[in-house]
């Protein structure tokens, strides 16, 4: 890693002022677990990092709201994993975090970082997207709301300006919805996923009323599979319907080839795992 400067503002507003919309060598850093990888590889050589670790504590807290959760962007993934409020309102998040990276990374990595990094292999973005989470984004001109669904612009790309920061995430409670996240690895068991599938459903095996199905990792960004969702609505959930849903998902997604699999193979994984994820959601994941 080559030398750089580090600024440590004590407020979110101050941090935003230190960012420069036109200078890609200045970047914010939360836990740093993802950014450090790019810096060590020499892919990113910062002149200056703006640490968010000393901004207001409120951005590191989780609160139960009337209809769900407010999660500060600097909340660590470990805090999210251990939160009783999260387990109650959105148990899918708690379940997902158990197999997300490893404990040391979860102790340091932040919710805001996991989203803003734009890495399609991360597990939290598809889950938040399937749950219909929204974000409060702060910039020099004030705050704006953004659905997680609208955050990602492409491979490691988001719609955020370089001087905008995610301040909080708002997650609607599951309520009676049924949810599952399935992670498929093709290397070792602890590999980054070749495919992630998050499913949140209303209804039961007799008929699904609404569905959000999100794929990640096999695609260049976490992506809602709307034709698969549409195929799932209405009819009785049996092998025939699930086969249609799987086929719709397989046809709809756009894939990237990498060391974890070819496009053709990932398409087949999609076909199978969308089916399996819907079934897992309906059966009640452990």
């Amino acid at each position: 890693m080559t030398p750089f400067e580090l600024a440590e503002p004590t407020s979110l507003k101050e941090a935003i002022k230190l960012l420069d919309p036109d200078d890609p060598t200045i970047r914010p850093v939360g836990g740093g677990t993802a950014l450090m990888l790019m810096m060590k590889a020499g892919v990113f050589k910062p002149v200056k990092l703006i640490s968010l670790r000393r901004i207001e504590n409120s951005y590191s807290t989780i609160a139960a709201t009337g209809d769900g959760l407010r999660i500060g962007a600097m909340t660590t993934l470990a805090a999210l994993e251990r939160s009783a409020d999260v387990k109650k309102a959105a148990p899918l998040i708690t379940r997902t975090l158990k197999t997300l990276s490893n404990i040391r990374v979860r102790n340091v990595a932040t919710v805001g970082g996991a989203l803003a990094h734009g890495d399609p292999h991360m597990d939290l973005p598809p889950v938040l997207m399937a749950l219909g989470a929204t974000l409060t984004v702060m910039g020099p001109k004030g705050e704006r709301k953004l659905a997680v669904e609208d955050l990602f612009a492409g491979y490691y790309e988001t719609v955020l300006d370089k001087d905008e920061l995610i301040a909080e995430a708002h997650v609607p409670a599951h309520g009676t919805k049924k949810a599952a996240y399935m992670k498929v690895t093709t290397g070792s068991a602890d590999d980054w996923p070749a495919l992630g599938v998050a499913v949140v459903l209303e209804g039961d095996a007799g008929g699904i009323k609404s569905a959000r199905i999100v794929a990640s990792a096999a695609t260049d960004k976490a992506t809602r599979l709307k034709s698969a969702e549409a195929a799932l609505i209405g009819g009785k959930v049996d092998d025939t319907l699930l086969a249609k849903v799987g086929d719709a998902a397989a046809d709809e997604a756009e894939y990237i080839a990498d060391v974890r699999g070819s496009i053709s193979y990932k398409r087949e994984l999609m076909r199978v795992y969308v089916r399996r994820a819907v079934r897992a959601a309906l059966e009640g994941a452990k």
């Binding site: 740093g32 677990t33 450090m36 990888l37 640490s51 990276s101 490893n102 040391r104 340091v108």
Partner: peptide, 25 residues
């Protein structure tokens, strides 16, 4: 890359990967 665990250090009671953790943190 924080994957192997050889650099594990405990900071304020929590395990971290010392290779990804800036000393300035």
């Amino acid at each position: 890359q924080g994957l192997c665990g050889c650099c594990t250090v405990i900071v304020d009671g929590l395990a971290v990967s010392g290779c990804l953790y800036l000393a300035a943190f």
